[in-house]
Structure formats: structure tokens, C-alpha cells
């Protein structure tokens, strides 16, 4: 995976229906690292990810991949570099895990080109990476929430991206599956940008955190720099005490009852 290419936003603004959802955010992912996006509901995490994934057009500012403005890149070329795992995307079609992962090869194939050995190899590797190789024939609707999320990640990996964007990939999963998914993301040899709700999981798994508050970037840095009691109170409106865990050396947030 290319180490020097990275996704960055520069003074990006975007709104819907006259409400500014993302308000002048400048942020860069570090190559090969995990950048966590945290912030309360409606703070603009998902919107920012959608702008970075080119699903929405910025009202002002630019999003760049390496040196290029992403709007100037051909659609398929962009999809070969940047993959997105949406929140809870599902289907009613009777697709197998393998069918879903194969979709990831779409940007690598012309409308008439046949399925190649390289396509098959990318799908096999992706299935191995998420640990679903033995369940490739299973039907989508028979999968658990955690398996579905892993299938989505495998589909994204089959795109062979250098950058992976994930919108709350642990949402609605039980704690074991949440840890499993985040550990999986940590193992992947890509640059990741992950929107997360759980501050403790963010502290545990992310290399850097960006805190969004009312569409603005409130703070960015290592979890140690970002997760302070004062920031949690102003951004999330809750009282907390932050301590370093003696077990894993990462910060841990304890919420205090009113």
C-alpha cells in the first residue's frame, strides 16, 4: 500500500437545508495509522466521512488524496484508492458473502471485462483478512451483525484501497464483536479514518483522534492530548474523570453520575 498518499480536508464546509453540518474542517489522516472521529450525535462525523468518500460535494474547501483534489480524480480511480464501510448497510437480495465481497472489484473491472485471477485473488485475500473464508457461501440474511460488518470490510478490502473510511463500524454490535472489528481494523495495512461513539474504544484503538463539535474541529491529536476532562465536558456535556489504565497504558474515561 502506498505510504505517502493520504486523504486530507482543507477548510471544508458542507450543509444541508441551510444548516451547516461541517464547518471549516482541516484534517489529515496519517499514512498507515488510524484516525478516530469522535463527537456527539449531529457533530458532523458522518458528514465529514461522506465528504472524504466523495459521496457529497463540498460547498467550499477541498478534499485531497495525495496532491490531487478528489473531485478531479476519475470516479473509478478514486474507488480503487479509497473504500467506505457504511453504517448498517443491508440488502434484501439473496447474496452470499462471496457475492458481496466480489462487489469490491467493481472499480477494477470495465463494463465488459471478464472476472480475472487477480480479482479472485483479491476476494480470497479479503475474506482471509476478515476471517470469513470458511463462510463465503453463506447467505447475507443468515449472517450475524458482526459477520455482516466483517463482510462489508472484506468488500472494502477487495477494492485494494490505500485508505479505508468506516462510519461507526461497531454500532449495534455486542462488546466482543466491537473489540473484534476494531482489532481487525488495527491489523489492516491501510490508512483508516473511523467514526466512533465509544470514547474508551477510541482511546484504545486509534492512533489519533479528531473531536468534532457542532460541525467544527474542536481538537486533534493523540488520545492523550485530546481526551481531557475539560474537553469531554464542553463537547459531550458530561462529567468524567480520565485516568491511565494500569493494564494497557491507554487512557480510560470514567463517567460520573450527575
Amino acid at each position: 500500500m502506498t505510504a505517502d498518499v493520504t486523504l486530507a480536508t482543507h477548510e471544508v464546509r458542507w450543509g444541508v437545508g441551510g444548516v451547516l453540518m461541517v464547518d471549516g474542517v482541516t484534517l489529515a489522516a496519517e499514512p498507515g495509522r488510524i484516525l478516530g472521529l469522535i463527537g456527539p450525535n449531529g457533530s458532523g462525523k458522518s458528514s465529514l466521512l461522506r465528504l472524504m468518500a466523495r459521496l457529497r460535494k463540498v460547498s467550499s474547501g477541498v478534499v485531497t488524496l495525495g496532491d490531487a483534489n478528489i473531485d478531479a480524480l476519475p470516479r473509478r480511480a478514486f474507488a480503487r484508492r479509497v473504500a467506505l464501510v457504511e453504517q448498517q448497510a443491508t440488502t434484501e437480495a439473496a447474496l452470499t458473502v462471496q457475492d458481496v465481497v466480489r462487489l469490491g472489484r467493481t472499480p477494477h473491472r470495465g463494463p465488459l471485462s471478464a472476472w480475472t485471477g487477480a480479482d479472485a485473488a483479491a476476494v480470497d485475500t479479503a475474506l482471509e483478512q476478515v476471517g470469513l473464508a470458511d463462510r463465503r457461501e453463506r447467505l447475507w440474511h443468515s449472517l450475524s451483525g458482526g459477520e455482516r460488518q466483517r463482510a462489508h470490510i472484506a468488500r472494502a478490502l477487495a477494492q485494494c484501497p490505500s485508505e479505508l473510511l468506516l462510519d461507526e463500524p461497531t454500532n449495534h454490535l455486542d462488546i466482543r464483536h466491537q473489540l473484534e472489528i476494531l482489532a481487525l481494523i488495527r491489523r489492516l495495512p491501510v490508512t483508516s479514518v473511523v467514526a466512533l461513539h465509544d470514547l474508551n474504544l477510541a482511546a484504545l484503538f486509534c492512533d489519533r483522534l479528531a473531536v468534532l463539535h457542532q460541525g467544527k474541529l474542536a481538537r486533534v491529536g493523540t488520545p492523550d492530548e485530546v481526551l481531557t476532562e475539560e474537553l469531554i465536558e464542553t463537547v459531550f456535556g458530561v462529567q468524567a474523570s480520565v485516568e491511565r489504565s494500569p493494564r494497557h497504558g491507554r487512557l480510560q474515561v470514567h463517567y460520573l453520575m450527575g
Partner: peptide
């Protein structure tokens, strides 16, 4: 095929 998971999913696979 790419529309199976919706329009945004299709767009993120490079479909115009």
C-alpha cells in the same frame, strides 16, 4: 449489481 446496498454504496464503488 453495485446498487445492492444502495446508491451511496454504488457510488463508493466508483459507479456514476
Amino acid at each position: 449489481d453495485a446498487f445492492a446496498f444502495g446508491a451511496d454504496a454504488a457510488a463508493s464503488l466508483g459507479v456514476p
